[in-house]
Design a protein around this nucleic acid. Structure first.
Lengths: 106, 106
DNA sequence: ATACTATTTGACTAAATAGTCAAGTAGGAC
DNA sequence: GTCCTACTTGACTATTTAGTCAAATAGTAT
């Protein structure tokens, strides 16, 4: 494959976009429904411009899509497997914590 | 859940560790087998200290485990679903490229 | 036109990450 | 002990990313 590094860059970009706790929080809030920016902001009690930038990171990575209706912009997950990732990584993280606890307990 | 942000930080850390093309390359080289650092370095034709640092990022995130045998250190994937992620994100990235191509073609 | 709301963008600083090279550690051979 | 190989770490610079605040944009209402 000649453009292997292009492919890896794209995939890396997806994971980079998932690699921030606020963005994971956004993903959990969205789930399978669309939400406007204002809903996300109030759910996370965060700064609007900050959330807006996180949303655009995920949109650029191809994880989210958006739609404008009146004054509001609605975002939704358009890469369904991203939700699976978070789920599975969450379990992996938890079991890693468990393993560490067991290791410390001996 | 009181320690929600701790959980999200851990998960974010996993994705951050996947969010680099070289680290994805390492993951593809490893697959389900263990390889020594020297094998990875020669497969990727990269700098040893650079690869060593990428390996430790993935190890700290809980994605890789390692084992020393003589002079060599063998790394392996200990978070199997990470391999699925890469696979699925790769397909998602490809279909995003397709969509863009179609959109441009009209 | 003004005023108001929802969202994005620009400018900036602070912090994290990546790459490189030199130096350090650890194990094996002699 | 010395030397060599495999790997890791430290120091450093360059680049990227994150957060914040002010300003800009876009739509609605009056």
């Amino acid at each position: 494959m000649p453009q292997n590094h292009i492919r890896l860059d794209l995939v890396a970009n997806i994971f980079k976009a998932l690699g921030h706790p606020i963005r994971l929080g956004i993903l959990e809030i969205l789930g399978t429904r669309e939400k406007c920016v204002c809903d996300i902001v109030s759910a996370l009690q965060a700064d609007t411009s900050n959330i807006s930038k996180h949303l655009s990171v995920m949109k650029n990575a191809g994880i989210l899509g958006d739609r404008k209706e009146g004054l509001k912009v609605y975002y939704r997950v358009i890469m369904p497997c991203a939700l699976n990732f978070v789920d599975c990584a969450g379990k992996a993280a938890l079991s890693a914590i468990e393993d560490r606890r067991e290791a410390l307990a001996g």
